[in-house]
C-alpha cells in the first residue's frame, strides 16, 4: 500500500528546474524572443526536444524546422513556453515503464497533442489567460507520477484492476486520499509555475467546489480534452484509458462545441 512518506519521498525526489530553463522562461516573460532563443540554444537537449515536438505530424509543417529562432518565431512565445514546460516534465520521465506499457515516443506524442488542442480550445472559447495555457503541460506528469508511485504496489494494482472497476486515480485516492491533480499541482508549485496555473490544475479533479469563477468553462473543456485524449487507441492499448477519475456528465452543447474545435485543422 502507499504510505504518506512514499508520496512525500517521491515529491522530494522531483528535481528543481535547471537555471538555464528558468532564464529562458524569464526572457519569454519579458517578451524578448531573441534572448530566449539564444538561451535555449545553450541547452542542446532542449533544442533537440523543441525540434522533435514542432516537427511532429500533428503540427502539420511541410518542411523540417531546425533553427531555434525559427521555431520560436513560428510557434510564438506563448506556445514555446508551453513546450519548455513540457520539457521540464521530461525530467521526470522513467527510463523504463513498468506499470503501463508506454514509452517516451508515445509520451511525447501525447504532450504534443495536448498542447496543440488546448491552445486551439483556449483561443476558440476566448480565454486570454496565458497562465492557463501552461497548465496543460504539467498534466502528462500525472501519468509519470502514477507510474512511479504504483511501481512498488504493482501486484496490488493489478489485483484491483482485475476485480474492481477502479480508475488508477480512484485507487490512488483510496490508498492515499489524494488525487493525481493535487500531486501535479504540488510539482507545479515546486517548479514555480504561476499561482493561477497551480490552482487551475488542482481544480481539474475537484468536483465538490461549486463555483470555479471565470475558469469554469475552461475547466469543463480541459476535462473533456483529457477524457478525449485518453480514449485514443494508443491509450486503450496501454491500459491508460482509465487513468483519471473525472466526471462524465457534460452538457450536449459543450460536447458539440468541443467536437467542432478538435476537428478543426491547426
Amino acid at each position: 500500500m502507499l504510505s504518506k512518506s512514499t508520496i512525500n519521498n517521491y515529491i522530494d525526489s522531483v528535481p528543481p528546474v535547471p537555471k538555464i530553463l528558468k532564464d529562458c522562461i524569464q526572457a519569454i516573460n519579458e517578451a524578448d524572443m531573441i534572448k530566449a532563443a539564444n538561451i535555449a540554444d545553450e541547452d542542446k537537449a532542449l533544442v533537440h526536444y523543441l525540434q522533435q515536438i514542432v516537427n511532429k505530424p500533428i503540427f502539420g509543417f511541410a518542411n523540417e524546422i531546425k533553427q531555434t529562432r525559427q521555431i520560436f518565431g513560428i510557434l510564438g512565445l506563448a506556445r514555446v513556453k508551453q513546450i519548455i514546460y513540457s520539457y521540464f516534465v521530461l525530467l521526470l520521465l522513467p527510463k523504463k515503464w513498468e506499470v503501463f506499457s508506454f514509452d517516451t515516443h508515445k509520451f511525447q506524442d501525447l504532450q504534443a497533442r495536448l498542447i496543440l488542442h488546448w491552445s486551439k480550445i483556449l483561443e476558440k472559447i476566448g480565454n486570454q489567460d496565458k497562465n492557463l495555457l501552461g497548465a496543460i503541460t504539467i498534466i502528462p506528469a500525472t501519468l509519470i507520477v502514477c507510474e512511479m508511485l504504483f511501481r512498488n504496489v504493482k501486484d496490488t494494482i493489478s489485483i484491483l484492476k482485475v476485480k474492481k472497476n477502479m480508475s488508477y486515480e480512484a485507487i490512488l485516492i483510496k490508498m492515499s486520499g489524494r488525487t493525481l491533480f493535487e500531486l501535479a499541482a504540488i510539482i507545479a508549485k515546486k517548479w514555480e509555475f504561476p499561482e493561477t496555473t497551480i490552482e487551475f490544475i488542482a481544480d481539474i479533479a475537484d468536483v465538490k467546489k461549486g463555483d470555479f469563477g471565470a475558469n469554469a468553462r475552461a475547466l469543463q473543456f480541459v476535462r473533456l480534452l483529457l477524457i478525449y485524449e485518453f480514449s485514443t487507441p494508443v491509450m486503450i492499448q496501454s491500459s491508460l484509458s482509465d487513468l483519471f477519475e473525472l466526471p462524465s456528465d457534460f452538457d450536449e452543447h459543450l460536447l458539440e462545441e468541443f467536437h467542432t474545435i478538435i476537428q478543426e485543422q491547426f
Partner: peptide
Amino acid sequence: HPTGFIDGNN
C-alpha cells in the same frame, strides 16, 4: 468499462 469517447477508431 470503457471510458470517454467510443468511435470507429478506438
